[in-house]
Amino acid sequence: MFNYAQWFLGGMSIALLVQLSQPVATAVSVDKGLQTAQTNSNDAAAKALVEGTQLYQQGTTEALRSALPKFEQALKLYREAGARSEEASTLNWLGGIYSELGEKQKALEYFSQSLPLFRAIGARSEEATTLLFTGIVCSDLGEKQKALEYFSQSLPLFRAIGARSEEATTLTNIGAVYSALGEKQKALEYFSQSLPMYRAIGDRRGEGGTLTNIGSVYSDLGEKQKALEYFSQSLPVTRAVGDRIQEALTLANIASVKRVQGNLTEALTNIESSLKIIESLRTKIVSSEFRTSYFASVQNYYQFYIDLLMQLHKTDPNSGYDIKASEASERARTR
C-alpha cells in the first residue's frame, strides 16, 4: 500500500505572503532624519524581498539558494527599521525556503524566531500559520508527537479567526500524524472532520487528498473494498483539479488494492498509468538535485510494478511479463 498521508498545505505556500511595510501615522513626534532613514531602509528591504520572491518562484535549487541572501538582506534591514511584522514574515520566508531545500532544522530555527514576534504584535493568523508550518517540519523530521503539539496550538487559533481552509489543513495534518503513529481510528476521526470542510469551501484539491488518505487508512485496516470506494471518489476529483502527483498516488493505491483482491491485470493497468504520470513529471523538473530527490521518492512505485509483473509472469510465462519487468528495472535506474 502506498500509504503516504498528504502533508500538504491546502493551497498555501510554505512562505507567507509578502507584507511590504507602509508608513504608519503616529501622534508622537519623530525626528525627520530618523524617519527618512527608516523609510529608506524599508524601501530597500522591500526591493530585496521582491527580488527574493522572484528567484523563489523559479523553483530550482539554484534559484532557491540565490534567494536566501536576498531575504537575509531584507531581514537585516527590517530589523534595523524596527519593522517587526515584516521581520517576522521574512523569517518565515527563510524558514520555508530552507524546508524546501531539505534543511529542516534550519527551517525550525527561523520559525522559532518568527513565532514570538507574531505573538508579540498580536498577529493571530500569522501565529497560527507559523505553528502549522513548524508542525509540518517536525513531522518531516519524524518528531510526530512534537508535530501534534504544534498542530493542537494552531487549530484553535484558526477556528477562532474563522480560517476554515487552514483549519481543514490542520485537521488533515493531525490525521496524517495519527495514521503514521498507527492510530488509524483516530486518524479517521480527523479526516472525517476535514473532508466536509474542504467540500463546503470548494477546496477540491484538499478534498481529493483527504479521500485518498481515508482510503489508505481503510486499506491498512484490511477493509480493502471500502478503501477502493474512497480511492475511486478521489480519482476524478484529483484529475479535475490537475493534481498529477495525487492522481499518481491514488492510481498506485488502487493498483495495490486490486492486487490484493486478485485482479492482477486491472492492477497492472492502474500502476502503469501511475508510472506514466510519474515519468512525465520527472522530465519537467529542471533541477538535477530535485529530480534525484523525486526519483528516490517514487522507487517503491517501480518496485511494486516489477513485483506485479513477476507475479503475472508466474501465472502466464509466455506473455513477456518478465521482459517488461527487466525494462522497468532499467527505467527505475535511469535518472
Rank of each mutant, 00 (worst) to 15 (best):
E223Q: 14
K224W: 09
Q225H: 10
Q225I: 04
K226S: 10
A227W: 03
L228R: 09
L228P: 08
L228F: 13
L228A: 06
Y230S: 07
Y230I: 12
S232D: 03
Q233P: 14
Q233A: 08
Q233R: 15
L235K: 03
L235C: 11
V237N: 07
D243R: 09
R244G: 02
I245N: 11
E247N: 02
L249W: 08
L249S: 09
L251Q: 12
L251S: 02
A252K: 11
A252R: 09
I254A: 07
V257N: 11
V260I: 14
Q261W: 11
Q261C: 10
N263M: 13
N263F: 14
N263I: 02
L264W: 07
E266H: 03
E266C: 08
A267C: 00
L268W: 05
T269F: 00
N270R: 03
N270L: 03
S274T: 11
K276Y: 09
I278W: 14
I278R: 12
I278N: 13
E279F: 05
R282E: 15
T283S: 08
I285L: 06
I285A: 00
S287K: 13
F290D: 02
S293K: 15
F295T: 04
N300A: 12
Q303R: 07
Q303H: 04
F304K: 01
F304V: 07
I306R: 00
I306D: 08
D307F: 07
D307R: 01
L308C: 03
L308K: 04
L309S: 03
M310C: 04
M310F: 09
M310H: 07
Q311P: 01
Q311T: 09
L312S: 01
H313E: 14
